[in-house]
Design a binder for these strands. Sequence first.
DNA 1: TAAGTTGTGTACGATACCGCACAGACGCTA
DNA 2: TAGCGTCTGTGCGGTATCGTACACAACTTA
Lengths: 246, 246
Amino acid sequence: MFITTAQVTNHNYLLTAVQTDEFERLKPHLELVQMPLGSVLYESASRLQHAWFPTTAIVSLQYIMEDGASTEIAGVGNEGMLGVSLLMGGAATSSRAIVQTGGCGYRIKAGSVLHEFNRTESLQRLSLLYIQALITQMSLTAACNRHHSIEQQLCRWLLLTIDRLSSNELIMTQELIASMLGVRREGITEAAGNLKNAGFINYRRGHITILDRSGLESLSCECYKVVKKEFDCLLSTYTTTQHSHS
Amino acid sequence: MFITTAQVTNHNYLLTAVQTDEFERLKPHLELVQMPLGSVLYESASRLQHAWFPTTAIVSLQYIMEDGASTEIAGVGNEGMLGVSLLMGGAATSSRAIVQTGGCGYRIKAGSVLHEFNRTESLQRLSLLYIQALITQMSLTAACNRHHSIEQQLCRWLLLTIDRLSSNELIMTQELIASMLGVRREGITEAAGNLKNAGFINYRRGHITILDRSGLESLSCECYKVVKKEFDCLLSTYTTTQHSHS
DNA sequence: TAAGTTGTGTACGATACCGCACAGACGCTA
DNA sequence: TAGCGTCTGTGCGGTATCGTACACAACTTA
């Protein structure tokens, strides 16, 4: 498999790092699908039918409480996968996965991915690496929820989202961001207003444009840098420890 | 290996569920050690030297921020293990592990546990199951931090701790609980005072006694029940899917 | 027993965030 | 162009938690 510029939208780092010969075996099971904004890949406590490897899409993992309140616990882009619990012997999961930025991704049937995980050494190794990075991100989210202000968290969230996109504009309502961060919509309106006044972002109804990354970084909590570093580290580990076919 | 009543303090559910023949291979690497209150098993970003399987000890996983603020992201008792990142290809971890209730546990060298993980089918399967439960607990913690009051969280925390103990008294200062929940000590004093007035707990300097479990449950957020259920489920999965030697 | 250390109780203003209510603006559809 | 639904801006009182400060009580050690 060769990733050319024309195919760059079909690129998932985890998949790409799977060894060439093993990837050939995996390939027939992979299906490139649309992942439209707002679609729910799985609900909490539902049985997983597939695993996904996003390419251009970004997915938000959320925990939903009994009263409907939600909290994002991690984000997944083309550095990772969804449905890791399939690999761990549980068919269900405790979270909801909802597409936060529309795009594409590879899909693979639940049965196939488990079968391949067990017989494909490099997929197994890479998945475990990814799961560890995911755990780190979740820990950080828990701590960030506790200690940092809405404005700081909004900066972190915008930066992490922008980092996974090729553009500097994201299609996203304040309402949606609020539900991800688990705060009131008005809280986001206020924080976003501050960022706009500072000249760091601009926005109109459902669209946010990042104007000044470094400005956001200066207002963000440390959590952004830590997650970023973790991901950079993850991506280099994907490829350095073993031959890649990309 | 037979767990008799005299040995019951040496019992870790995960280890016990490892298949008999495979366990025999694991056994020489296991070392039963004291895990005294307050001792730090590993710091964040430090290189892991061992993995641990608590028997009577309870360990708190915390994320420490740059300014020193801490947040508990999960607790580990005799249902699980510490140092899961060793199994996942990373030698370091992003959290701190600190003994929250003194006791005993099995320790195994980092090199040995990775080696055995790769060649011991049941250990691998059980570890992955445990990691999934750990992820669930972490998700819940993130959401609970966001949405629930100090009093609710204190109830959850007390219940989860008591569930892992044989006694109904725990040795624990309010200061320590505060650092785990990531709140001010005064917040715990107030919440604990309310629980005392309600007759649900009693305490003196460094000791807390649970008087009324169901009272605590009624004030706790849903998170307690969810984690409890997850653990019950985990323990039954440990043993039902495969023969156990306990 | 005395001195020192550590844990707990209490108070008070500051502040971040919530819940609610409502007005207005944007953008889609007919 | 008009109408409608959705998104955003704003205000206001209520509340949980924070930061700080200090008094006192319980245990430890000399």
